[in-house]
């Protein structure tokens, strides 16, 4: 039947075996449709990224002037808890006394604080095991076996530098990017 031949005609090759110019137009049109469809996907996917108002809260300022040595505060950074801890000299000493070789995630206190500001330990309050909030930031909470933080979900113990010492968590508490805007104000979310 004639119709059958027609449908074949579209895909038929020229007598010399190459792709005919006619077929090239069809291939180009289908390709253009493909490019258009792919380009359409971009806004459809990109819209799920954080919106501008969410990003606007991506950096916060924290006034640390009222935190006495030995105290810590809990605040919110990017919708997650943030611990700011004013270490006592004894806590700093305890943190520095540990040799990094015996740590699961070797880091020194100096690497986890800013230069000249070793008494300010700023970490996310998110256990690196499964995301619970560790205890130890508020007065009277269990600080764990190493005097830092203790995660009650699965028993991870962090030391005074927020490093993992015991329990299932694989990494130290995350230190977010932050800088000292002044002696008493830190800006979290911006690189120093």
């Amino acid at each position: 039947m004639a119709t059958v031949e027609h449908s074949d005609g579209m895909l038929a090759t020229a007598p010399d075996g190459g792709v005919r110019r006619r077929d090239f137009i069809n291939i180009a049109a289908v390709s253009a449709a493909g490019v258009g469809a792919a380009a359409t996907l971009y806004p459809l996917i990109n819209q799920m990224n954080p919106a501008a108002d969410t990003l606007a809260l991506a950096s916060i300022e924290v006034d640390v002037s009222a935190i006495q040595p030995g105290q810590a505060i809990k605040t919110i950074f990017r919708k997650q808890p943030l611990f700011v801890r004013h270490l006592t000299p004894a806590e700093i000493q305890a943190a520095n006394a540990v040799s990094t070789g015996e740590l699961r995630d070797p880091q020194t206190l100096a690497e986890r604080t800013q230069e000249g500001k070793a008494e300010w330990l700023v970490t996310m309050g998110v256990c690196t095991h499964l995301g619970c909030v560790p205890l130890g930031a508020a007065e009277g909470e269990n600080k764990g076996a190493f005097g830092g933080y203790f995660c009650p979900c699965h028993g991870s113990h962090y030391d005074t530098a927020g490093r993992i010492r015991k329990g299932p968590a694989p990494k130290n508490l995350e230190v977010p990017a932050y800088k000292f805007a002044s002696d008493t104000v830190i800006t979290v979310g911006e690189v120093a």
Binding site: Y42, P43, L44, N46, Q47, M48, N49, A51, A52, D53, T54
Partner: peptide
Amino acid sequence: AMHYVPYGDAAFLSVERIMRDVPQGWLL
């Protein structure tokens, strides 16, 4: 519907948030 909120005045605001803050939200 991922961004819209069917709640009173928040509905109007959520549409405007789509128009202003959601990436390419105005286009959608």
